[in-house]
Structures are given as C-alpha cells and as structure tokens.
Design a protein around this nucleic acid. Structure first.
Lengths: 342, 342
DNA sequence: TCTTAGCACTCGCCCTATAAGAGTGCTAAC
DNA sequence: GTTAGCACTCTTATAGGGCGAGTGCTAAGA
C-alpha cells in the first residue's frame, strides 16, 4: 500500500521528530543522508501520507509530525532494533553486580537504573505476593494485649502486622496456636491462607485451646488485611523533564494516575506475555492519552512473571526502549532464576 | 517601632496577599472593613513599611507584597491563632477513628489527612528505628544457602533481610546461634545491636559453635545494613496546585529535594521541640527558598519524639496551619501514648 | 508519467506601538 | 497629620508589520 519511498519518508520523519521534538519540514528532510529526491517530491509524498493519516500538521504551514497511526505503523513495520551501545549494557549489568539475594531489592534497583537510562518513568511489577508459599508463621507478644503476627514466605518475603490479643491470655496458649498454625499451614500460598485458616485449623484449635476464639479471630483479621502491592517506581519526576509536557494540570493528573495503585492494572495489563507497545489513546486511561507505554514481562523463578513498564511521551525513543527492555527482561529473568534456584 | 496603624496595614496586607496571591494596592486595601483612613494615607504608610523592609513591590507601580521580613514579623507578632473550624477537627479526628494498633499506620494516615486538609505537602517523621528495643531475633532458613533474619522490636516493628549462609550447614547450628543471640541481645536497642553483637556474642559463639565464623559474619552484614528511614509523605504532588509555583525546573528540584532522604534533616531539623516556622531563605536548602516550612514535634510513647512538617509557598496560610499542627501534634501524642502504654 | 524548480500564500513568532487600567509618589490644601 | 488630586510608571492586552519556515500548486523538464 505504501511505496518504498513513502516508507522511507515516514521513517525518517518519525525518527527526526523523536529526536528533535520539532515538526519536520520537507527542506529539512531533503538534506538528510539517504534522501535522493527533492523537497518538492517530499512535499507531495508527505501530503499523501497525511491523507492516509500517518502524518499531521500542527497548523496550516507547519512541518509534519507523526499521528498516532503514524507511530503505530512505525512501531509495527519500521522499527529496526539496533544492538544496545556498550555503556547501556554496562549500566544494566550494574544492577546485578553486587549479588543481592532479595528479589525485591533487585527489582527496585532495576526500576532505578532503567529510569536513569531512559529519562522516562519506569514501573516494575514484582512477584504476586499472594502466590508466595508460607514458610513459617510466628506470633511475638508485645504487650499484655497486643502481639505481632509474622509470616515468612519461601521467597524470603516477610509480612507482619500488629494485632490485639485478649488481656490476660496465657502465653502457652499463643504458643499452642502458633504450633498448630505451623503444622497445618506451611506450604500454603498466601492467597489460600485465609480459607485454609478457617477450614482446617479452626476445628483443631477448638479441641486443643480454651480461649481460642478471641485470639484466633483477631489474628485472622490481621492476616487478611490487604497486602501492599508489589509495585516499584523509578524516575517518577522524569515527566517534568520532557519538553512534550508543559501543562501543569495534565502533568498533575498523569502523576496522580501513576501513583494510584488501583490504576496500575490499567497501565500494565496483567497476564501480558512478551513486549507490548501502547500509543497515546490506545491506553486505557485518558490521563495517559499523550503517553506511550512499553511493557515487557519477565520470569520470576519458574512459575511466576512480573512486568516492566516504561512510560514516556508518544514521541518516545521506541527503538532504544525496546532494546533496553528486551535485554533487561532477559537479564532479570536469569538473575531471579538464580536467586530462586538456590 | 511600628505604629498601631502600620501594624494594621501590614497585617491586612499579608492576610490579603495570602488569600489572593495578588499584590495589594492602596485603594483595594482602603475598601477593607476595619480601615478608616484613606488610600493616600495607606500609600504613605506602605512606603514607610517598604522602607523598613516589611513590604516589597514586584515592579515600580505595582501593589505591595510582603517581604520575607514582613512574613517573619507577621508570624512573630501578628498571628492571632483562631480556633479550628468544626469540619477540620472532624477530619483530623477521623485519623484515629478506627483504633489502629500500629504506630506507623497512624502516622501514615496523619500525613495523608494533613495534606488533604491543607493542600500542601506534609512530611511526618516517625519514631527513630534505631532506638527501638529488640524483642526477638529469629532466623528462618529459606534454601540450602540462604536464610532470612528477622528482628522484632518492642514497638511491633519488624526488620528483615535475606542473607547467604554457608552451604551444608547443620540446621542445629543455626538454632544454636539464634538461641545465643536471643539470650544476649533482647533488650538492646537497634542502634547498639552492632557493637553488642561483636563484643558479647562473638566469644560465646566461638565456644559453642563449630563453624560460627561464616554464618555469623554474613548475619552481621545483614543486620548492619542501613535501615529504611521512617519518613511518611502526604500530598507530594500538591505543589503542582499552588499558583506560586509555575517554573517547572524549580518544581522539579523542589520535589527532588523532598524525596531525597538525605535532605530530610535539612528540612526538618532534628531535636526541635515545639513549633517552628522557617520562611523562604531561612530554610537550609536553596531549592526551598520560595517555600515556608512549619514543623512541630509530637510525642511517641514516653521517651521518643517525632516531627510533623508542612511545606508550602511563603504565601502560606500560617494561621490555619499553625492551629492544625498544634491540634494534630496533641492528638497524635495522645493516641500514640495510648498505643504504647498498652 | 514522474520529478522538480519556482512561486504565491499561510502561519507562527517576534518586535513594536498603542491604549487601558491599576497603582504609586508627590504636592498642596484642609 | 490627613487626604484629594494629578502626573507618572509599569503591566497587560491588542493590533499590525516583517521575517522565516513551510506548504500547495503549476508548469517545465527528464
């Protein structure tokens, strides 16, 4: 449908605009290396490309900028991934250089390095805490009427919460409960903890403990409270550096949206395997209609996956980001596999 | 030094500018209730006040705005604290309405509510984790060569960190170590943990354990790593709503400064008891020269204190913020005392 | 038929000029 | 000591002109 020459012009236009943030004119484009035809020809072709919806003008006599459709075509057909420059690789590798043994720590660092490398905002989704397996439960009494419940999972993640205990409770009762809980619940995922807690342990406690009710119910309350999401940010403020964003209201609502954990699934659709690019209004949230989001999944151990997302202007350096994310996704999967296999 | 009339004019000018964000002119001021003299008189007085450095002009023929010295005088001598409106009190009390038993949770909520109430940014400093007392230490093995160290403190705070353990270690060795650690270190503050760890426990371990060295040193490594600061934010993005801030670069560096935990002591001087107001260049950081910071301390249990800070433009609603912080400081102290006494 | 040089035309941007409006400082009168 | 009056200053808004970059169209050339 598009001629070779039109493809070339589209590509060069998008590349140039991504680099300069300025509308691209026919004369300017004619000077580029690789262009063998005159500006008049370019003008004709550009008019065609505009007619087909790949380019736009900001005003009647301005140069052209890519439309969303233009970006989409560019991303789908014209993206020639180039190998990452050495410096980038070195920086990426620095994430793993001091062998950290905590998954969360590695992911945190990835978010940071990624935002530094790109100057965009990065969001990383870690492992789904609900799928972690209980390794050990314990209860540490603090005062006469409060204690802290601690759950250690197989990944080394530690959940803890203070909860009230009935006044004057015999410490041995608590010990008894902890023993029962550990006997029955080790190996259960946090997700199933709640149901298993009721189904299996309640009966046994009834048999073995006197005042099991009061203690058990507050403990259960503590354990079912919604858990912190596993979301890590890098370069939250980087939007402020982008020349594409100047409207303070838009910036505000964009930043609001990104911080709100409810919105995260709208920004990074769960269960998406591989690399995905969402341009402008392709995003689910209207606050992000001026943004592009590139997401990629990575493996956490053998069963789980996490996601990496880069949020930037539509005029994003797609080529570079795609290469970066591809590499990081692979490296991160490898590293986490190492941690998990140990 | 200042006449009654000058005081009145200064006060009304500051009040008006705080409310409108527009330079205040003599005519405008003459219309205010409580002003019985003409605009010409006001002009004369304003010229005097400007001469003394309390007022400034943005340009030759503009109205006046308060200088930093003007704000300072206003804050020191003209601030008539008014009782908080009912709605504010209700909102503040809502922080405590569902009896939360975790200190951190209460402080987090305070930060949130405070920023909603003020439209400024709030920063709350929680208890100093280093002064917490060790209640229990435990080590949970995860894999053949990693384990997670857990420290529970008297306040219910839980520190945890994954650390490598020597391959093929006998589980009973770990148990032995945990026992020794608990015997010797319960009641020690996190701050002293490191030294006590070396001084007291090392010798005993040497006597009782075979391969104590490898295990102990990595454990120690894990325990001394810098701990997360106890800083809670509310309304980080509220600066974006202030008409006083429009320069994106300034906003960016301001937000950068606030998020950087190293800078926190510069924003909120530690050990400051009571309420303090820092106006513009009185702040230690140049990035904050257009801001005012109001801080107040509050009690955490019987021995410790925390701080509340509100960061807004110099044109801040001092009267309201001071009342809010006074009230919150008292309420928070009371509530935390309740939690700690239990 | 495709390509391109040429040219009129269109905007955005910048600079300037002008008018209106708000506010000041000074003077002189009360 | 206070105030009315007035000239003056400076900001803001609005309009016009010139410049430059860019377009679309036309007609000539390959």
């Amino acid at each position: 449908m598009l001629t070779e020459r039109q493809l070339l012009i589209l590509k060069v236009t998008v590349d140039d605009y991504i680099q300069s943030a300025q509308p691209v004119g026919s004369n300017q484009l004619a000077k580029k290396s690789g262009i063998t035809f005159s500006s008049a020809t370019i003008r004709n072709e550009m008019a065609d490309l505009e007619g087909m919806g790949f380019l736009e003008k900001t005003h009647t006599s301005s140069g052209r900028i890519p439309s969303e459709r233009g970006y989409r075509y560019y991303v789908d057909h014209l993206l020639t991934p180039r190998p990452l420059p050495k410096e980038d690789i070195i920086q990426l590798r620095s994430i793993f250089e001091d062998k950290i043994s905590e998954t969360e720590e590695v992911i945190k660092r990835s978010a940071m390095i990624l935002s530094e490398l790109t100057n965009y905002t990065s969001i990383l989704l870690g492992p789904d805490v609900r799928r972690h397996i209980v390794k050990k439960l314990s209860i540490v009494p603090l005062t006469s009427n409060s204690a802290v419940a601690i759950i250690v999972t197989d990944s080394g993640h530690v959940e803890n919460r203070v909860f009230p205990i009935p006044e004057g409770l015999n410490p041995s009762e608590i010990e008894k409960m902890v023993n029962i809980l550990n006997e029955r619940l080790i190996g259960v995922s946090l997700n199933d903890l709640h149901t298993r807690l009721e189904q299996e342990t309640m009966m046994i406690m009834k048999q073995h403990m006197e005042r099991y009710g009061e203690l058990f119910s507050t403990f259960r309350q503590a354990v079912i409270l919604p858990r912190e999401k596993n979301v890590y940010y890098g370069g939250k403020l980087n939007i402020l550096n982008q020349p594409d964003f100047h409207d303070l209201h838009k910036i505000r609502s964009l930043m609001d949206v990104m911080e709100e954990s409810e919105h995260i699934p709208m920004i990074i659709p769960v269960g998406n395997q591989g690399l995905h690019i969402r341009i402008g209004s392709e995003n689910a949230l209207t606050a992000m209609e001026d943004c592009s989001v590139i997401t990629v999944s990575y493996d956490i151990g053998e069963e789980q996956t996490g996601s990496i997302a880069i949020i930037g202007p539509k005029r994003m350096d797609y080529k570079r980001i795609v290469s970066l994310l591809d590499t990081l996704s692979g490296d991160l999967s490898k590293e986490l596999n190492r941690i998990f296999r140990n």
